[in-house]
Design a binder for these strands. Structure first.
Lengths: 209, 209, 209, 209
DNA sequence: GATGAATGAGTCTTCATTCAT
DNA sequence: GATGAATGAAGACTCATTCAT
C-alpha cells in the first residue's frame, strides 16, 4: 500500500482520461456528437467501452470536459491578448493568426468547438452560456479600446463588431474544415491572414482618395 | 368522371405536405434534426404520425425537402441580385437587408438552414454540396464585378471575401437566433444593417485622412 | 332504378373481385402472404387499395377465398377420380398428370396452395384443417380400393402412402416452381409423369426376376 | 493478465448465442419466422431482447445461423452415408431412419428446416441456394451408384428420384409436425420406416409374379 | 362502387448505460 | 482499473385498416 501504485494508477488513469478526450475530439469532429457512439470513442482510444464510464458520467460529459478544458485555454489566450499593450491592428493580426494556427494544428478540436459548442442549441441549452460568451468579452474589449484610442471608428457598435469578427473566423475555418477552401502550404494560410486582417480593418471598398 | 376529386385530393395532399414542412421547420429550429422525433413533427402539424411517411420516406428527407424548396429560392434571390445593375455598395446593402428581413419573418427557416444545412457535416456528406455552395457563387460574382469596376480593392481575394460576407451574416443571425444579440424594434435592425454594411465595406479602422 | 345498373354493377363487382383474387395469387406466389402488402395486390389488380376492402374483410380473407374457391375444385377433381371406375395404375397416372398440368397452367395457384395453405402453420391454425385434409381422403380411398382389388400390396399403410403420394407431388412441383428442376417442353413433363408413376407403383429397385 | 477472463467471457457469450439459437428454433417452429417477434425469442431464451442484437444483426440472421450450423451437419451426414460401402437398400434404410430419428429428437429444428428454409421463397432468394441443394447431391449419388451396380432400375431418372425421396421425407415429417400423422411409440415410427423403405424401393403395386 | 388520405398499433433496431466478473 | 455481456428505454418505420369524399 505504498503511495507509488496509487500514483502510478492515477497517472495511468489520467492518461486514459486524456486518451478518451483526444479520441472523442476526433470522432466528434468527424461525425458530430449525436452521430458518435460511445463505442466509437472507446475503439478509437483503444479501450473497452465500459471504461469510458469510469472516467465520465456519460457521453455528454466528455463534450463538457472538452469544452471545460480547451475553451478555457482559448479564452485565456484572448484575455492575455486583451491585456497586452499593442495596437489594435497588431492585436487583430495576432487573433487571426491564432485562429489559423489553432486550426492548422488542432483542426478536430476547432471543428468540435465550432460545431458542437458554439453552434449547438443543445449544448448552449444545457450549459452555462456565460462560459461560451466569455470568448466574446475580450474581443469586445479590444474593439472598445481601439475605439477609445482612435484606431477604430467612433460610431462602431462594439458588440456587433465582435460577432462580425467571430463570424468571419468561424466561416473561414469551416471552409478549411469542409475543404471548400483548400489551403495547402504555409504561404496560402499567411496570405489568408493578411486578407482577413485587411478585410476586417479596412473593408472591401477601394479606399477613397 | 371529372378531374376534380383528384385535384381536390391532390390539393389536400399538397397542403398536408406543406404543413409537415412548416411543422418540421419549427421543431427542427427548436430542437435540431437529431433532437426531433417524427412524432413531434406530426403533433405540431396536427396529423397522425404515420401520415408523415406518406409524404416523406424518412425524417432526413423532410430536411432535404426544406433545403430543396427553400434554398433554391434563396439562391434565386442572390442570382437576381447579381444580375441587377446596381453599385456594389447598393447590392451589399440589399443583401444584408434581405438576410435581416428573412430572419425577422422566417427565423425558424433561417435557423434550420444555418444549423442543419450549412453547418451540418451529416447533411453536407449526404447531399450534393454543390447546391449548398450555389449560394456562394452569386456573391463571389458580385464581389468580382465590384473589383472590375473599381469599387472593390483590386487585391481582394473574392473567394475568401465571400466566406467573410457569409460568415458575418451567419454569426449575426445566430446571435439573433440564440438571443445573445437582442433586437426588438425595426429601428434596431435597421441600425445593424447600416453597421454591417459599413463594417464590410469600410472596415473597422478609423479612415485615414 | 332498373335492374340493369345493379346487374352491371354486380357483374363489374364480380370481375373486380376475381381480379383481386388473381392478382393476389400472383403476388402471394412470388412473395408469400406475409411478404405481400395489400397495396401490392391492388397495384397488380390495377385498382385503388381501399377497394380491396369492399370485397374482402382483410388480407387473410383473400387467401381464404383462394383456398375456398380453388381447393374445392381440386378436391372435386380428386373425388371424381376416386369415383371413376378405372384401374389403380390408371388413376394414379391421371392424378400425376393432373398435378403436372395444373402446375403448367396455373403455377402461381399451385405455389400458393403448396406454400401458403398446405404448409402454413398459420393457415392451418386459423382454418378448418378438415377442408385441407379433404384432399387426402379420396387419395386414401383410391389406395384402399387398390388394395382391396389386389393391385396394391396388402401390407401397405394407406394413410402413410397418401402422404407419400402427396409428398412426391409437392416436392416435384416445388422443384418446378423454384427452377431447380427445369422442364421446358411438353415431352420433358410427359417423361416426368411416367417416371413418377413408375416410381410410386413399382419403386426404385430393379424388379426381382 | 491471463487469457482466462476473455475465455470465460467468450464461453458465456457462446452459450448465450447458443441459447438464442435454441429459443429461436423453438418459436420459429411454432409461429414461423414472420410470425415471431424478436421479443419472443429473447423471452424464450430468458434474456433481454437487446442482447439478441449483440449476437445477430437481425432476425433473419438468426435463421441464417440456424441454417449455416445445422444444415451443414445434415449434409455431412448424407455425405458420410454416400461414402459408406453399403447396399442401396441399406443406405436408404439408414437415410429414412435418420430422418425419423432426427424428427423425434429435434422436431423443432426439422420443422424450421422444412418450413422456413427448404420451402421459403424468401430464404432461397436471399441465400446461396447451392448450400440448400447440397443436400440433394449425396442422395442423387447414392441413387446413381445403385443404378450402376444394378440395384436400381436402369431407366430411373436419378435427379427426379432424389426429389421423390426428399418429398416423401418432407411430407411425412410434416404429417408428424402438424399432428395429422400421429405416432406415439417407438414401434409406430419403426413401422413407418419399414413402410417408407418398401414404398420407395418396391413401390405400391402388388409385385408381379 | 371507387379513391387514396389518414390513422396508429406493432415491431424492429439502436445504443447509452449498468454491472458482474 | 478494465472488460464486455446484459439491459431496456427510445424512437424510426411499416402497413393493415378505416373513412371522408
Amino acid at each position: 500500500m505504498s503511495a507509488r501504485p496509487v500514483a502510478r494508477a492515477t497517472r495511468r488513469s489520467a492518461r486514459t482520461r486524456e486518451r478518451i478526450i483526444e479520441a472523442a475530439t476526433e470522432v466528434f469532429a468527424r461525425r458530430g456528437v449525436h452521430g458518435t457512439r460511445v463505442a466509437d470513442i472507446a475503439e478509437r482510444a483503444g479501450i473497452a467501452y465500459g471504461l469510458v464510464y469510469h472516467h465520465f458520467r456519460n457521453k455528454e460529459e466528455i463534450l463538457t470536459a472538452i469544452f471545460a478544458e480547451r475553451w478555457a485555454q482559448y479564452v485565456a489566450y484572448l484575455e492575455d491578448l486583451a491585456r497586452t499593450p499593442l495596437s489594435f491592428r497588431e492585436r487583430m493580426g495576432r487573433l487571426i493568426h491564432f485562429w489559423v494556427e489553432t486550426y492548422r494544428h488542432e483542426a478536430d478540436l476547432m471543428t468540435v468547438m465550432i460545431n458542437e459548442i458554439t453552434r449547438s442549441y443543445e449544448f448552449l441549452e444545457s450549459h452555462d452560456i456565460t462560459a461560451v460568451l466569455a470568448a466574446f468579452d475580450p474581443i469586445e474589449r479590444i474593439i472598445a479600446e481601439g475605439r477609445l484610442n482612435g484606431e477604430v471608428r467612433a460610431d462602431l457598435d462594439a458588440q456587433l463588431a465582435t460577432y462580425v469578427v467571430l463570424g468571419v473566423a468561424e466561416m473561414v475555418l469551416t471552409g478549411y474544415v469542409i475543404g471548400s477552401l483548400q489551403r495547402i502550404d504555409q504561404e496560402a494560410f499567411a496570405r489568408d491572414e493578411q486578407q482577413l486582417l485587411a478585410l476586417l480593418l479596412d473593408g472591401m471598398s477601394t479606399p477613397r482618395p
